[in-house]
């Protein structure tokens, strides 16, 4: 029997927690192509994902879920299109403590939705930080319609990441049912 692999893409602005999210649930060590940061404006962390992160969750012998994290920096956006091909859905990570990245997050969301109109969810990351914006305030800031799910998230906590993934999968099921009727 042919093994079915399905793909969920994790996207979002630079330093929004994409790698962390994949690390929290992947059964393999996340394959990251990281590089030291050179651009002055992006020196929030020492290194960043250049090409992609790659995580895996095996369901059984004939079903595997891959998690692909996109590079956060705009100059690598040529990779987005490739990564979005055939995705089951996608997660847009947004750093709740950095409102200066909200506009970019919105732009990334629109770009990915244009690439493939698959279900998606917005994960409001770093909700454990004192500076974090309230999720409903973020909904307004990101101009998200009420039909779009936005979940509080702490990417380093497995339980939180599980909730985000589950909500996305529930959304995918709902869309399948809606398309049928």
């Amino acid at each position: 029997m042919q093994t079915q692999t399905v793909k969920i893409v994790v996207t979002g602005p630079f330093n929004s927690g994409k790698t962390e999210l994949i690390r929290s649930v992947s059964e393999i060590d996340v394959v990251s192509t990281e590089k030291k940061i050179t651009a002055e404006a992006e020196k929030v962390k020492e290194s960043t994902t250049v090409a992609m992160d790659f995580g895996r969750i095996t369901v059984d012998d004939d079903l595997v879920l891959f998690l692909f994290g996109t590079p956060g920096q705009k100059r690598f956006d040529f990779m987005w299109e490739i990564l979005s091909e055939g995705m089951l859905g996608f997660i847009v990570m947004v750093d709740s403590t950095r409102p200066e990245t909200f506009r970019e997050a919105r732009s990334i969301l629109e770009t990915f939705h244009a690439y493939a109109p698959t279900p998606y969810i917005v994960a409001a990351n770093k909700q454990d930080c004192a500076d974090a914006w309230d999720v409903e305030d973020m909904r307004v800031a990101l101009r998200l319609d009420h039909s779009i799910k936005i979940m509080p998230c702490v990417a380093k906590k497995k339980s939180s990441v599980k909730n985000v993934l589950l909500e996305l999968l529930f959304g995918i099921l709902e869309e399948m049912d809606a398309n049928r009727s």
Binding site: V59, L165, L169
Partner: peptide, 29 residues
Amino acid sequence: ITPGRTFVAQDRDEQKSIVNRLIDRIRAI
């Protein structure tokens, strides 16, 4: 842009079954 195929299976019930199996697996992590 030419999106690749999301599912190997063409049948909608099979596709739903795949998503349900993913849900069960993630719940078990």
